[in-house]
Design a protein around this nucleic acid. Structure first.
Length: 736
RNA sequence: AGCGGGGUAGGGUAGCCAGGACAUCCCGUCGGGCUCAUAACCCGGAGACCGGUCGUUCAAAUCGACUCCCCGCUACCA
């Protein structure tokens, strides 16, 4: 029996947790902890809501409520969602607690006293009109080294030079374009550089880490560590515990990792023994595991270890099994369909075991994994329901019907040994996988065992045997009940609820959890009464929204006909033009078309505009949309709306148009192509069917393709007809 | 463009670090079996030159070099 510390990355309290959190950092530690507990280990598993930091204050400002209100709201939502998913924390707390403040302050003061922190006076930009210090990314100016005019407050992106406050020339506040003052402000820095050698040594022999984690960390360390400021000028957060530090809080990343420690202490406090946490943190024999997503790696393999080294006397991470990301191929589409993947809504429709199974089976352990509803449905129905669920049910219901109790085993010992060795082999393999945090592999081992059960059951044929030799049949069923029990135990970290139900069907006393891992092999008492079994899992049907055409992706766009009123050079860029475009209202657009069109050619031109792009600054100038243009490498031509169009006319191809603002990168994923109209089909480099007006034979139009190999293309059009492009453009040319 | 990750049958995956005999499993597909079970389960077939090129080796999906493509973050990508 050993103690294990399991730390889970703290979900940020500004939105409900979603499947990505579950796959990345929440389910793996739960699987691990449940497994270790079943084996008799004592597990302390802690996490909580990360409630500080700018995104929360931003959200609060938007909603006109306090940051605390936002942070508490999502803490409650997420805490409940986590509980409902049967993720068993020893404690799931939050960072905005008295305890956490105290622990963070203690660590801060301790490091300060040990010389790991130092105060350094820096010049920071202060915006008099916003009345606050500006985070670096909200300041822009001219780089003193290379003359780049859009350098940020902390670094010039062009030449890579980093600098401190004051070095930047002609700085501006991004929000209000006020010229910020430079004010002197003092901040505490952590001497990361001082830990570099020790960290490199420490990481070197971490061969049990996942390769990506180890490699990533090593590269990062070898590139050299710079001291980082750990405080900032802000109100929301843990105040710097020193006199004269009003208006300064501890940076959210420093504050959050200390949460592992503070949560452990809070747990100890609540358990009645305030020192109970020490057993998990100071005994070098106790291993600590940190579960997180890959975006969080450096904080847990560099910064947190540095803090721990600085403080001394506490265990460093033993393993950091970081997962990759769960991605959403149809993310945008799913949202537009109104389907969601946040956990609270998912739990309204599916049992926690269903969600747990899917996430475990599709866990992004080595590379990003893709979520799709089709895959969700398929994995649940074909694997969980058909293989495992059906095996349970055919064994349990058959035995219940013909015996009503656990039959006696009177068969050959070879038969028994065959079954038991299959069970033991699977158990050993599952243990190996689980010990190494290979959760997908362990699950597969279990499913393979269920398949073995199905095969074996078929080969014995109890339904025929019962008519010939009841005793022999009973013996065979006994072995299958053993297998059912083994499966229930082995799968219980993944499927805690259904495993307990199976346990009850077997007529077992107590709970599976109490019985523990060793119950995999334990005998079943003959004549033990069985309970009437019900199927453990039922098939699911993912609702497919009708009315959702194959061209759903196009509906995320809002295209409008427009006219260019004015064109002038971008003040800070060689290839960009600044355009005023009338699309019913006048907007400013930055276009990278200077190499292809003169200003004179542009002015007065009819264009098609993507009007719902998230506005962005391009080299300092606001761009509120973009012009559609066809690009065939050498030649680039603007796309034209149908003749007679008026600025503001919708180019919707008869479909709905989105009011939502879309990100540029999401727009880039849409496939728009030039197509030549020939007969009733289109040529986009290959022939496709057309949806929309095709009367302009021989002309070049613009189409939307749902996918690269789609068979049907949507012709972009308004009520006045299709959108066209210069005939010189070849079919298949990209439009962007 | 920079950094990171990845490319294995129609789709999705395992194996790769510690190179070896028919390349794993799931779905789909084709054919067969069974009828206890939620049209489930079982058996068999077809389907992959393991992104490409070159190299190391008796032997490479696995090691090295180069190249193409994809994804994430970053960027004067609009």
């Amino acid at each position: 029996m050993a103690k294990v510390l399991v730390c889970v990355a703290w979900p940020y309290a500004n939105s409900p947790i979603h499947l990505g959190h579950v796959a990345g950092s929440l389910l793996p530690p739960d699987l691990f902890s449940r497994y270790r507990r079943l084996r008799g280990d004592e597990v302390l598993m802690v996490s909580g809501s990360d409630q500080h930091g700018t995104p929360i204050t931003v959200r609060a400002e938007k909603e006109k409520v306090t940051p605390l209100e936002v942070a508490e709201r999502y803490h409650e939502i997420n805490k409940k969602a986590i509980e409902d998913l049967d993720i068993e924390f020893s404690l799931f707390t939050k960072t905005h607690t008295e305890n956490h403040f105290r622990v963070v302050s203690d660590v801060f003061l301790d490091l300060l006293q040990k010389g790991c922190l130092y105060e350094k006076s820096t010049l920071q930009y202060y915006c008099p009109s916003c009345q606050k210090f500006l985070p670096d990314r909200y300041v822009e100016g001219i780089c003193p080294a290379c003359g780049n005019e859009k350098a940020r407050g902390d670094q010039c992106e062009r030449c890579g030079k980093t600098f401190e406050g004051g070095e930047l020339k002609e700085a501006k506040c991004v929000h209000c374009i006020t010229v910020p003052e430079l004010r002197e402000t003092k901040h505490h820095f952590i001497k990361l550089s001082a830990f570099q050698e020790r960290l490199i040594d420490w990481v070197k022999d971490k061969q049990h880490w996942r390769p990506s984690v180890q490699l990533f960390t090593q590269n990062w360390l070898e590139a050299g560590l710079e001291d980082r400021p750990i405080t900032r000028d802000m109100e929301w957060g843990v105040p710097v515990p020193l006199p004269g530090q009003d208006g300064k809080v501890i940076y959210v990343w420093f504050d959050a990792v200390i949460g592992y420690l503070s949560a452990s202490m809070e747990w100890a406090q609540r358990s009645g023994d305030p020192d109970a946490w020490k057993a998990y943190w100071t005994d070098p024999q106790v291993r600590s595991y940190y579960f997180l997503g890959k975006d969080n790696i450096p904080f847990h393999t560099i910064i947190w270890p540095a803090i721990l080294m600085g403080r001394g006397g506490l265990n460093l991470p033993y393993d950091v099994p970081a997962n990759e990301f769960l991605t959403f191929k149809g993310d945008k589409v799913s949202k537009s369909r109104g389907t969601t993947i946040d956990i609270p809504s998912l739990l309204k429709r599916y049992e926690p075991d269903i969600i747990r199974y899917y996430v475990a089976a599709n866990m992004p352990e080595n590379k990003d994994a893709d979520f799709s509803w089709e895959d969700f449905e398929a994995k649940i129905n074909n694997e969980l329901v058909a293989t495992l669920g059906n095996y349970y049910h055919r064994v349990l219901s058959f035995t219940y019907k013909h015996f009503g109790e656990v039959p006696e085993f009177k068969g050959a010992s070879e038969d028994r040994e065959e079954m038991m060795s299959a069970i033991r082999e699977a158990r050993d393999a599952a243990e190996d996988a689980l010990d190494g945090c290979h959760f997908k592999r362990a699950l597969k081992t279990i499913m393979d065992l269920a398949q073995f059960g199905n095969r074996h059951f078929d080969s014995v044929g109890p339904w025929a045997l019962i008519k010939k030799d009841r005793e022999q049949c009973g013996s065979a069923l006994y072995l299958h009940l053993m297998l059912v029990k083994a499966l229930a135990v082995l799968s219980s970290p993944y499927l805690p609820r259904s495993s307990e139900r199976a346990w009850k069907f077997l007529g077992q006393v107590g709970t599976l959890q109490q019985a523990g891992w060793s119950a995999v092999e334990a005998e079943l008492p003959a004549h033990q009464k069985l309970n009437e079994p019900k199927p453990l899992f039922s098939k699911i049907e993912v609702e497919k929204n009708e009315g959702d055409s194959v061209f759903g992706g196009f509906e995320t766009l809002n295209l409008k006909a427009g006219r260019i009123l004015k064109a002038r050079d971008h003040p800070n860029a060689d290839s960009l033009l600044l355009l005023e475009v009338d699309i019913g209202k006048t907007i400013q657009v930055v276009a990278g078309l200077k190499a292809y069109y003169t200003k004179e050619e542009m002015e007065g031109r009819e264009v098609v505009v993507v009007s719902n792009l998230k506005p962005a600054k391009l080299r300092g100038e606001q761009s509120q949309g973009m012009l559609l243009a066809a690009d065939a490498g050498e030649i680039v031509k603007l796309v034209s709306p149908p003749s007679g169009s008026r600025p503001g006319d919708a180019v919707s191809s008869g479909l709905k148009q989105s009011d939502r603002v879309i990100e540029f990168k999401d727009f880039q994923k849409l496939i728009l192509r030039v197509a030549e109209v020939s007969g009733d089909h289109l040529d986009v480099g290959r022939a496709v069917k057309a949806k929309g007006p095709t009367e302009l034979k021989g002309r070049k139009v613009v189409v939307y393709l749902p996918s690269e190999d789609a068979e049907e293309a949507l012709v972009l059009s308004s009520e006045r007809g299709p959108v066209t492009v210069d005939d010189a453009m070849p079919g298949g040319a990209t439009v962007r």
